[in-house]
Structure formats: structure tokens, C-alpha cells
Simulated scan of single mutants.
Amino acid sequence: MTVWVDADACPVAIKEILFKAADRTQTPTRLLANHSMRVPPSRYIHFTQVSAGFDVADNEIVRRVQANDLVITQDIPLAKEVIDKGAIALSPRGELFSKENIGARLNMRDFYDTMRASGVQTSGPAALSAADKQQFANQLDRYLQQHRK
């Protein structure tokens, strides 16, 4: 099992939680982004810089992900694609995406996109809170415990 991270928009605090979990549980963790970033030296943490372009990192994650892998992303279409491949998707706020809830999330995303395209001002997501970080850490730990070899 591998943890894949859509690292372009992943908050630093969430990456720190992932780095600690990777070393603690000896879980391969692969970050993909189209810009350079630093990761701590670890045999379990790997960074791949992909070429610039829309959804290049997302497409690479979809290409590489396997059933039962965990993908960290806030990108709803990416979450849908990895779920379709049998993987699990978890948002940086600790929301677990599943076959049961991804359709509704896609519909809501599309609704807001339509509103913004028609000129309606919508607020962006709230800042990542301590409760969000704790929720993420709890979901991550739960998943890693359930999928240990």
C-alpha cells in the first residue's frame, strides 16, 4: 500500500503529519507536484516533480495508483478517478471520499463552478483549523492501522 499526495495544493501542516506517519508506520509515501518542494530525508518519503500543466500531477497519480492505495487530495474529480480504480481518497480536512459520497460531492462542485461562471461570488474554503488537522490525522491513522501488512 502506498500513500499518494496531490502535493500542489496540500497544506504544509498536512504534509508534516504525513511525513511523521510515513516514518512511524514505514509506509511508502509519494508526493507529486509540478513545482519543486522539500521533503525530509527518509526511505519512505519520495517526491516527484512532474511537468507544468493543468492536471499533470493528477493524471500521473491516476496512472500509478493501485487498489487499496490512499490518495490525499482536495480535488474532487481526482478523488472520483482514484475511487474508480479501487483506491481510497482522503481530503486534507479529513473527509474520506467513498463510492457512496463522491457523486454528491461532484454535483456540489459542479454547481458551485456554474455559479462562479455566471458571476456569483462564492467564498473560498475556510482556513485549515486545528480540528481539521486532528480529523485528518485521525482518519490517516485509522486507515494506516487497517491496512498494515
Rank of each mutant, 00 (worst) to 15 (best):
R24A: 15
A33P: 04
N107I: 12
V82A: 03
R116E: 11
R64K: 14
R30C: 09
F111V: 08
L31R: 01
H46W: 08
G86V: 07
R30G: 00
E95Y: 07
K80N: 13
R109M: 03
V65P: 01
R38F: 13
V39H: 10
I83L: 14
P77I: 07
K85H: 10
S98H: 04
M37K: 09
I76S: 04
L32P: 01
I45C: 04
P40M: 03
H46L: 12
V71R: 00
N107P: 01
T73P: 01
N59V: 08
A104K: 13
V39R: 06
L70Q: 02
K99V: 13
G53E: 08
D75M: 07
A67R: 14
T114D: 15
R64G: 01
D75P: 08
I83V: 13
H46N: 09
A104Q: 12
E95G: 03
T29Y: 01
D113M: 13
D23V: 12
D75W: 06
S51M: 14
I83E: 03
I88E: 05
P77R: 07
K99W: 08
A67E: 15
R93V: 00
E100T: 11
V65I: 10
A22S: 11
G86M: 07
E81F: 11
P28V: 00
T25G: 05
G103V: 10
P40C: 04
N107Q: 15
P40H: 06
F111D: 06
A89D: 00
P92E: 01
R64A: 13
K85N: 09
D113L: 14
V65L: 08
D110Q: 12
A52L: 12
S91L: 03
H46Y: 09
S118K: 15
L70E: 01
L32G: 02
Q26G: 10
Y112H: 14
M108L: 15
R93K: 13
R116M: 09
A22T: 05
